[in-house]
């Protein structure tokens, strides 16, 4: 029943060279990232796949919390739309968060993140939903008037076409004026992934370390 070939790469890491070619990661970084993937994907069910519960557990260190954003990030990572993340989806998505990834990829990903209904634009109601969710999550209390005022000012600046929604072009202009809005799209950890998970060398198929 079993594959006795021990030289075979683990599930999901059959071809690290291809993933390295198609992402910003080197082969060694792909292999180190696999160590992180193994850790997250074995937290609840050790099946070599990350389900939503495991993703949430890794993000919040608890599985009790409902989060609009964790769901949204998971759904964007899940490009095969089957409710689970395989290593390829995980690596391709995290590649966008690498400090060396193109800024346009980060702009595009963040736009998709905030375009909750995936209509090709961010509407006011979605911004309000996300602001309310963030405040609830952090235990901050702001009156509805204050929230409306924050959103008014944001739309005054971002919605340059004055149609009540923020399209991709307006989003791009906004984040280029305010680069701090993309701060969470860059993970410095990814630059040091091989030193964070040095054990990858024991399974490495390449000699580029």
């Amino acid at each position: 029943c079993c594959d006795a070939d021990s030289s075979k790469q683990p599930r999901g890491l059959e071809n690290p060279q291809v993933l390295a070619t198609e992402t910003v990661f080197s082969v060694s970084e792909i292999e180190a990232l696999y160590e992180l993937f193994k850790k997250i994907s074995s937290a609840v069910i050790d099946d070599g796949l990350i389900n939503k519960e495991e993703f949430q557990l890794a993000l919040f260190k608890t599985n009790k919390k409902e989060s609009l954003f964790a769901d949204r990030v998971f759904d964007l990572f899940d490009t095969k739309h089957n409710g689970i993340l395989d290593f390829e989806e995980f690596a391709r998505a995290l590649s966008v968060f690498h400090p060396n990834a193109p800024i346009d990829d980060k702009i595009q990903f963040s736009f998709q993140l905030y375009d909750l209904k995936q209509q090709g634009f961010i509407e006011r109601q979605e911004v309000k939903q996300m602001v309310v969710a963030t405040l609830a999550e952090s235990g901050m209390n702001l009156s509805d008037d204050v929230i409306e005022s924050i959103i008014d000012k944001t739309f005054e600046e971002a919605d340059t076409k004055h149609d009540g929604k923020i399209d991709k072009e307006e989003w791009r202009n906004l984040v280029l004026r305010h680069p701090s809005l993309l701060k969470n799209m860059t993970l410095q950890y990814l630059k040091d992934i091989t030193t964070t998970f040095p054990s990858f060398v024991f399974h490495s198929q390449v000699d580029d370390t």
């Binding site: 919040f60 260190k61 769901d71 995290l94 999550e137 924050i150 944001t154 809005l181 701060k183």
Partner: peptide
């Protein structure tokens, strides 16, 4: 002043959007 804050700046502070937690024990 919270009203001078950009709504997206506030949103980007959400824990669910800060993926560095994936790397921490």
């Amino acid at each position: 002043q919270p009203t001078s804050m950009n709504a997206f700046k506030l949103i980007s502070m959400s824990k669910g959007l800060n993926l560095e937690n994936l790397f921490e024990d």
